[in-house]
Design a protein around this nucleic acid. Structure first.
Lengths: 222, 222
DNA sequence: TCAATAGTGTCTATGAGACACTATTAA
DNA sequence: TTAATAGTGTCTCATAGACACTATTGA
């Protein structure tokens, strides 16, 4: 049984060269880990670069035979103390002069993590609102732009598709998360009507301070 | 001046290893080149694999310091005699056991080429309707699915965003291209009303056989 | 009672879909 | 005139947006 991910010696191409004879790029993964803290704005995880001292997105080089998503999760764990969830690919940045360490392809990822599940190592990592996370090195601003755009697209149709909120939740809680992701306000009645068909009401009500008790909902699993 | 794309010897990471000391994957690019022949269905370029003899999507390995899109264009030229245009990235396929030649990342691309500009080497390449291009090896069916989905999304809003049709064109010609991309029919009046604001009429009319002369349009450059 | 939050009724403007109609040409 | 294609008028239905209203609680 061949070791997965190993480069075999048997294969030769039309010109008789082995796969291993060709130059190969280093492949990095960089991740924008996004979350919405309770009542807060859309925020991203940054790590401090040990050499430069500035803040940027966490990333790492892919190990032999490793899946890209696994490399992302390993990088988050090692560099930020964060347990990531389900990284999704955004784009490959392939400018040969992008990284002054050499020929590096960087595969940008988005990972969305509920604030409740987001524990990070304060020594090396921090959580900042996306608007305060600009001017990062290595084109990381662009990765963040990709990630925010992708996330906003996902949150225009479905109720909390990435599970930022623990179920069951009230309509107001849901709306506030969507407002944080979008960065703008939403009309309560229009939002409610758009989301209701995709939710199921539970028996539980939230009773907290004054005001009519709010129905708690779960996402409809269709 | 450092050679672009070269791996420098100076950089060392936290454990003192050089970038070049880490194992690196081979990186391939595979492309779904889509077009709509005059009056025909949405079609894709396939090449015959020299070793296996079966038909698949054209692809190649990335050369040192080369942009991914340039690698795609080179691969199309060398393997199919096709002059590609503007490859756009779709997805990175990273299953370590995906390619039995070793550890290979494959970056899937979409390139849309007008049928009029598509010349291919009949010895090695062919153009087939997308529904007859299935059961390809190396997961190329999945790449084709990604490409078709991306193309269809682009053609739901804008008139011929990839320029499959030479300007100026009549509304019927435009609609037939959109129908070919979508794979289903479109109501002429609804389609016309959706596209008109994004087009500018020219003075030229098409007079060809019976029927009212058709206005020729150009895409509005806004 | 009041303040606060949840939830509904309903009007309006917009636009997709559908169908019937008019317009202009070649043969 | 007829066949063929281009293009328009207009009705209907669904829906987003907006605003006002009712509902249910704690203090």
């Amino acid at each position: 049984m061949r070791k997965l991910g190993a480069v075999t010696d048997e294969y030769r191409d039309a010109s008789g060269k082995r796969l291993a004879d060709y130059p190969r790029p280093s492949v990095a993964v960089d991740a924008a880990v996004l979350t919405v803290p309770a009542g807060g704005p859309l925020s991203v995880v940054q790590v401090r670069d040990p050499a430069e001292g500035d803040w940027r997105l966490p990333g790492t080089f892919v190990h032999e035979g490793e899946r890209l998503a696994d490399a992302v999760l390993r990088g988050l764990r090692d560099k930020a103390g964060v347990s990531g969830l389900a990284p999704q690919q955004l784009h490959v940045f392939d400018d040969p002069s992008r990284d002054d360490r050499g020929w590096v392809l960087s595969v940008a990822h988005l990972d969305v993590v509920p604030a409740a599940a987001l524990v990070l190592d304060d020594e090396r990592a921090r959580l900042v609102p996306i608007h305060q996370a600009r001017a990062m090195a290595h084109g990381h601003d662009e990765i963040l732009d990709f990630a925010v755009e992708r996330l906003r697209a996902a949150y225009t149709e479905a109720p909390d598709p990435h599970g930022l909120l623990a179920e069951p939740f009230t309509m107001s809680e849901l709306r506030r998360v969507h407002e944080a992701v979008r960065g703008t306000g939403l009309l309560p009645d229009t939002f409610r009507r758009a989301m209701l068909p995709q939710l199921v009401a539970t028996e539980a009500k939230r009773v907290e301070g004054p005001g009519k008790p709010a129905t708690r909902f779960r996402r409809r699993t269709a």
